[in-house]
C-alpha cells in the first residue's frame, strides 16, 4: 500500500507533468497560434516574395517609388515624434507616482491605467471632437485671442501625433514607473547625506537607474506606433498616409495584394527584427503589474 503510493508519487515526480501531458495541454495553444497567427502572416510574406513570380520587385517598389518611400519616412518620423512626446510627458508622471504617498500614487495610477483599457476608438473619437472647427481646442484658442478664426486641426499629421501619444502614453509611464519603484530609497538618502543637491541626485542616481524603464517604454511605444491604423485613418489627412493606412488603401481600393503584402512584410520584418534585437529590453509582464 505504502509502496504503491510512493511509486505513484515518484512515477509522476509529484510536481512535474509528464512530457505527454505537457504536450497535450499546450496543443490547443500551439494549434490556434499556428492556424490564426503564424500561417496567415506567413502566407502574406510568401505572396510578397513570390507573386507574380519569385521576385523582390514588390519590395523594390516600396523603397524606390518616391511616393511610397515618403510614406515609410513619414511613418518612421511620426513614431519617433510620438515616442519623444511620450518620454517628455510620461517620465515626470512616472517619477511623481514613484515618490508620492500611496493614495496619491493610486490616484495617478488610475488616471494612467483606465485609458489603457478603454477603447482606442473612444479615445480617437474624443480627439476628433476636440479638434473640430468648432471644437474645444479651437474655441479655447479663439477665446484667449491666440487666433481670430478657427484653425484646421483635424485631418493633419499633428492631430495624429498628439492623439497617438495620448493613446500610447500608458505604455511609456508603466515601464518607467516599474524601474523607478525598484530604486531603493536608501540610494537617495545616501546621496543626500553625502551632500548631493537634489538635482544632482536626480541626474546621477535616479536617471541612470531608470534608463531600462525608459528604453523599454520607448521601444514599446515606437514599435506600436509604427503599425498604428485607427488613429491615422480617422484623424490623418488622406494625402499623408502612414504605412498601415497605405496597406488598407492598397487592399480595399486598389486590390494590389502582392504590393500590400510587401508593405506588410517591410513593417512586420522591421518590427520583429527590432523586437528580437532588444528582446531583453522589452518587458511585457510589467504592463500587467506583474514584476
Amino acid at each position: 500500500m505504502t509502496s504503491g503510493i510512493r511509486s505513484q508519487f515518484w512515477h509522476s515526480d509529484g510536481r512535474r507533468l509528464s512530457g505527454l501531458s505537457t504536450l497535450l495541454l499546450l496543443l490547443p495553444f500551439f494549434a490556434i497560434i499556428a492556424f490564426v497567427f503564424v500561417y496567415p502572416i506567413g502566407q502574406l510574406l510568401w505572396i510578397s516574395f513570390t507573386e507574380p513570380k519569385p521576385t523582390l520587385d514588390n519590395y523594390a517598389r516600396v523603397v524606390t517609388n518616391p511616393v511610397y518611400a515618403r510614406v515609410l519616412l513619414r511613418t518612421l518620423w511620426t513614431a519617433v515624434l510620438v515616442t519623444g512626446l511620450c518620454v517628455i510627458l510620461g517620465f515626470p508622471v512616472a517619477y511623481y507616482m514613484s515618490r508620492a504617498r500611496a493614495a496619491v500614487a493610486a490616484f495617478v495610477g488610475v488616471c494612467v491605467i483606465l485609458p489603457l483599457w478603454s477603447s482606442v476608438l473612444v479615445r480617437t473619437a474624443a480627439w476628433s471632437f476636440l479638434l473640430q472647427r468648432q471644437g474645444l481646442v479651437n474655441s479655447g484658442l479663439m477665446a484667449t485671442g491666440i487666433t481670430s478664426e478657427p484653425l484646421k486641426l483635424l485631418y493633419t499629421q499633428s492631430a495624429v501625433v498628439v492623439a497617438m501619444a495620448h493613446v500610447l502614453l500608458p505604455f511609456m509611464i508603466l515601464p518607467i514607473f516599474g524601474a523607478l519603484r525598484s530604486i531603493p530609497d536608501d540610494y537617495m538618502r545616501a546621496a543626500a547625506v553625502l551632500g548631493a543637491p537634489r538635482f544632482r541626485t536626480f541626474l546621477e542616481v535616479i536617471l541612470p537607474l531608470s534608463l531600462p524603464g525608459i528604453a523599454s517604454g520607448s521601444l514599446l511605444v515606437f514599435l506600436t506606433a509604427l503599425g498604428f491604423f485607427i488613429t491615422p485613418a480617422l484623424l490623418g489627412s488622406p494625402q499623408e498616409l502612414m504605412i498601415a493606412t497605405l496597406v488598407s488603401q492598397q487592399i480595399r481600393e486598389v486590390l494590389d495584394w502582392p504590393f500590400a503584402s510587401a508593405l506588410v512584410g517591410v513593417l512586420t520584418l522591421f518590427v520583429t527584427l527590432l523586437a528580437l534585437i532588444f528582446s531583453k529590453t522589452l518587458r511585457f509582464d510589467r504592463l500587467m503589474g506583474a514584476q
Binding site: 497567427f37 503564424v38 496567415p40 502572416i41 503599425g227 491604423f229 496597406v247 488598407s248 512586420t268 511585457f284
Partner: peptide, 17 residues
C-alpha cells in the same frame, strides 16, 4: 509565440486573416 501577437502589428494580422 506568446509575445508574437503583441509585437507583430495588428494591421499585419488583420490583413493576413
Amino acid at each position: 509565440l506568446l509575445i508574437g501577437p503583441i509585437i507583430v502589428p495588428h494591421i499585419a494580422l488583420a490583413v493576413g486573416l
